[in-house]
Design a protein around this nucleic acid. Structure first.
Length: 152
DNA sequence: GCCAACGTTGGC
DNA sequence: GCCAACGTTGGC
């Protein structure tokens, strides 16, 4: 069992959208960064827990959690020329990009904002603060517990 | 909307 | 395999 943080732009897909389809899962597609891809493909397992992070919006921060219901499988969007996530260099026999399915778990009463995370000494180790552009990233159990302490 | 950070591409 | 140019992310 591992912990992760997934970023999303709420204008595109928010935790409310994820909650709205519950108990159905959402296909977490469109990851086109190799480091994020490697985490998706190699390290994420069923029942891993996920922090949902809203970026590029008014209230930036961690807004809730989800659970992985389906580990990595090939993201078919890469082969679809009409799709925004089409990748001309992807090959059917050697896919480049993967996705996972996640299911809504909870929305926090209060968003744990990026500002709060920056101010919390126990969360200074978060990759979020070091590697701004990684949209799938591991979270340690310690960090997870500190975050849960804040929001419950 | 600006721009810093940084990942990716491609010429050499 | 280096590195400059380019493109994208994401906070402000």
């Amino acid at each position: 069992m591992a912990y992760w943080l997934f970023k999303t732009e709420p204008d595109h897909f928010s935790i409310d959208d994820l909650a709205a389809i519950y108990p159905k899962s959402e296909r977490w597609n469109g990851i086109r960064n190799y480091q994020a891809r490697n985490f998706l493909r190699d390290d994420i397992s069923k029942n891993d827990e996920v922090l949902i992070y809203h970026s590029q919006c008014k209230k930036i921060g961690i807004v809730g959690t989800a659970i992985v219901t389906q580990p990595a499988y090939v993201d078919q969007d890469q082969f679809d020329i009409a799709n925004d996530y089409y990748d001309a260099k992807a090959n059917l026999n050697k896919p480049r990009w993967y996705c996972v399915d996640i299911q809504f778990k909870q929305i926090f009463k209060q968003t744990l904002t990026l500002q709060q995370i920056k101010q919390e000494p126990k969360l200074q180790s978060m990759i979020l603060l070091k590697q701004g552009r990684l949209s799938i990233q591991p979270v340690t159990q310690k960090e997870w517990q500190v975050i849960m302490h804040y929001v419950t």
